Computed example of a mutant assay.
Amino acid sequence: MSKLLYSATMSLDGFIAGPGGDMSWLTPYLGPDPFADDLAGRIGSLLVGRRTYGGDDPHRGTEGEGQAFGGGWSGPQVVLTHHAPAEPVPGVVFAGDLGTAVATAKEAAGGKYVNVLGADVARQCLEAGVLDEILVFVAPVLLGDGVRLFDRPGGAPVHLERLGVTQAPSAAHLWWRVPTPG
């Protein structure tokens, strides 16, 4: 059965995007990473928030612009949104509610990971009890402001179980399991 994995590159001070969703800060940290390359082969589908889907691209100006992970992955994408485009987008399903989006992404993943992209959709998955794992690539930079990895004002603590810690030239990898609610 497919698991939901929230993965993101985060600054050391906890931001996955700069102010206004700016992703240009990430460009210097997109170098070769065998760990990330291996992970891409274990992803069966993406569950993407609308702002992430239509947002800034850290691969802007490269041949990977507009492609998932700069062209390092291809496959089905499910976008959680209340405002689907009028015209269909090949390889992309637009879902209006979290339950439908998760079910569609899991089916499309074919037993591989559903990679969750976007802080708000990840928060919704966590609060709904459907998020299984969190993988954070910690980049050696302090952004000072922007979009947090998780923003849950007033939220209760969630105690995670460590699955692994590794290091690459451009980031440390922290992998956690989200305990089953209850």
Rank of each mutant, 00 (worst) to 15 (best):
S2E: 03
L4Y: 06
L4K: 07
L4F: 05
Y6N: 03
Y6W: 02
S7V: 02
S7G: 14
A8R: 05
T9I: 12
M10W: 02
S11C: 06
L12E: 04
G14M: 06
F15A: 10
F15K: 09
I16H: 05
I16L: 10
I16Q: 07
A17P: 11
A17I: 08
G21W: 12
D22W: 04
M23K: 00
S24Y: 01
S24C: 01
S24Q: 10
Y29N: 07
L30M: 14
G31P: 00
P32A: 14
D33M: 04
P34C: 05
P34W: 06
F35Q: 13
A36W: 07
D38C: 00
D38M: 01
L39H: 14
L39A: 13
R42L: 13
G44R: 04
L46W: 12
L47I: 05
G49I: 04
G49C: 02
G49V: 04
G49F: 03
R51N: 14
G55T: 07
P58M: 01
H59K: 00
H59Q: 09
G61T: 08
G61D: 10
G61Y: 10
T62P: 13
G64Y: 03
A68S: 13
G72H: 13
G72Q: 11
G75D: 11
P76Y: 12
P76N: 12
Q77R: 15
Q77N: 01
V78T: 15
L80S: 10
T81D: 06
T81S: 11
H82R: 15
A84R: 14
A86E: 15
P88T: 11
V89P: 03
P90G: 04
G91D: 08
G91T: 09
V92K: 00
V92R: 00
V93N: 01
V93P: 01
V93E: 14
A95N: 09
L98I: 08
T100P: 02
T100C: 02
V102M: 05
A105S: 08
E107T: 12
A108F: 00
A109Y: 09
G110C: 12
K112Y: 04
Y113R: 00
Y113G: 00
V114D: 12
V116I: 09
V116S: 01
L117V: 08
L117I: 08
L117A: 13
G118L: 09
A119H: 07
V121R: 03
A122W: 06
A122Q: 06
R123Q: 13
R123A: 15
R123Y: 02
L126M: 04
E127D: 15
A128G: 10
V130K: 10
L131H: 11
D132V: 00
D132H: 12
D132M: 00
E133H: 02
E133N: 01
E133S: 02
V136K: 03
V138D: 07
A139Q: 07
P140S: 06
V141E: 08
L142K: 03
D145H: 05
V147N: 05
V147T: 15
V147K: 06
R148T: 00
L149C: 03
F150S: 04
R152F: 07
G154A: 09
H159T: 15
E161D: 15
E161G: 04
G164T: 12
G164M: 11
V165E: 11
A171L: 09
A172I: 08
H173Q: 14
W175D: 10
W175S: 12
W175K: 09
W175T: 11
R177S: 15
P179M: 14
P179E: 14
P179R: 14
G182F: 07
G182R: 15
